[in-house]
């Protein structure tokens, strides 16, 4: 058996020491993400005066420019960065865990579960709120957790590694099953609600304040904390569970951490912004095409590029047809798709 590139990287056979590569990559991708987050709040459907926005002598309640900057734009940009980073990082982990390039944050049924929760909340006009979470995000979070728990229960047996094929198939099947339930709920709902449910599926970052962000931040942070120590093990896992086990990876534990971390992160992102597609599946591939396959670099780089990408897409979504918005989920795929194909063809 030949040692594949990620495995070689994990063993330490990289061309340059990992620390230097990591620093260089983080500088470049971090710069792109920071640039996007700095530029995006300056541009919008209306033009505001920055000096007035930061003028402390005007009371906040009277300062429209400050309100537009701090209540409308900044939370949006932060939500885009957080959701983009979350989805892209989960994409990296799941593609490695399932050893499948088509895996995305939504492969495990989490998005369909959260969508079902949101649909039910919208259709039945749920009014239960919890702390910073208003009813629809709360319901979507509940749906995501329920779906993840279900898939997890199906794919694990005590003391044994998860079966990735069972995980994959259970996720895909659950996705279809939930999608059918979603269609059923939509079909039975009043059609004004039906339209709103469809709109929810297109993704929306206009969160209107930092409160919704605070509601999901603990989840995403917890998820990331579980994913952060995994890249070396993922490098070995992407070769195969047996190969990883012989090199001392606790396969069952790694899989568990990856799955739960991915589920938490995705649930938070989807509750915040809706099931925005494309970021989670393509940004990781984009990063691999650019910098190789070592997950120790790919994971943080993907998170940063995902943040920059979604912030950029949202910028387009809110300005291109202003005052009408194009849902951000449409922009991500319409813009990212052709670009990715171009890169794919050029590299191939």
């Amino acid at each position: 058996m030949t040692v594949s590139q990620p495995a070689a990287a994990a063993i330490g056979g990289g061309i340059r020491p990992i620390r230097a590569r990591l620093t260089a990559t983080l500088l470049v991708f971090g710069g792109v993400a920071a640039g996007a987050c700095l530029v995006a709040p300056l541009v919008g459907s209306t033009s505001i005066s920055l000096s007035r926005a930061f003028d402390r002598s005007v009371p906040f309640a009277d300062n429209v420019d400050a309100q537009i900057f701090f209540l409308a734009r900044l939370p949006r940009v932060l939500a885009g960065a957080l959701a983009g980073a979350a989805l892209a990082s989960v994409g990296v982990v799941l593609q490695a865990l399932l050893r499948n390039p088509l895996a995305s944050p939504y492969t495990l049924g989490v998005s369909a579960g959260s969508a079902l929760g949101a649909m039910l909340a919208i259709s039945f006009g749920a009014s239960v709120a919890f702390g910073p979470l208003s009813p629809v995000p709360l319901a979507s979070l509940a749906g995501a957790c329920a779906a993840a728990a279900l898939v997890y229960a199906l794919a694990t047996k005590p003391g044994r590694p998860m079966s990735t094929s069972v995980l994959l198939l259970a996720g895909v099947t659950l996705n279809s099953f939930f999608s059918a339930l979603i269609l059923f709920v939509q079909y039975m709902a009043d059609f004004t609600e039906t339209y709103r449910t469809i709109r929810w599926l297109m993704g929306d970052l206009d969160v209107g304040g930092v409160t919704p962000l605070l509601g999901v931040l603990p989840l995403i942070a917890a998820g990331w904390a579980m994913l952060a120590p995994l890249p070396s093990s993922l490098n070995l896992l992407s070769v195969g569970t047996d190969a990883a086990a012989t090199r001392g990876v606790d396969v069952a534990r790694t899989q568990r951490m990856a799955f739960i971390g991915a589920a938490l992160t995705t649930a938070g992102a989807v509750a915040l912004a809706g099931p925005i597609g494309f970021v989670g599946i393509v940004v990781p591939h984009l990063v691999r095409l650019m910098i190789g396959v070592d997950h120790r670099v790919v994971l943080p780089a993907s998170a940063l590029l995902g943040a920059a990408f979604l912030v950029g897409c949202d910028l387009i979504s809110r300005t291109i047809l202003a005052p009408v918005e194009v849902p951000v989920g449409i922009v991500t795929a319409m813009l990212g798709g052709p670009f990715f194909l171009w890169l794919l063809v050029r590299k191939a």
Partner: peptide, 8 residues
């Protein structure tokens, strides 16, 4: 409309 448009 977005919140920004509402404010503006």
């Amino acid at each position: 409309p977005s919140q920004e448009t509402l404010l503006a």
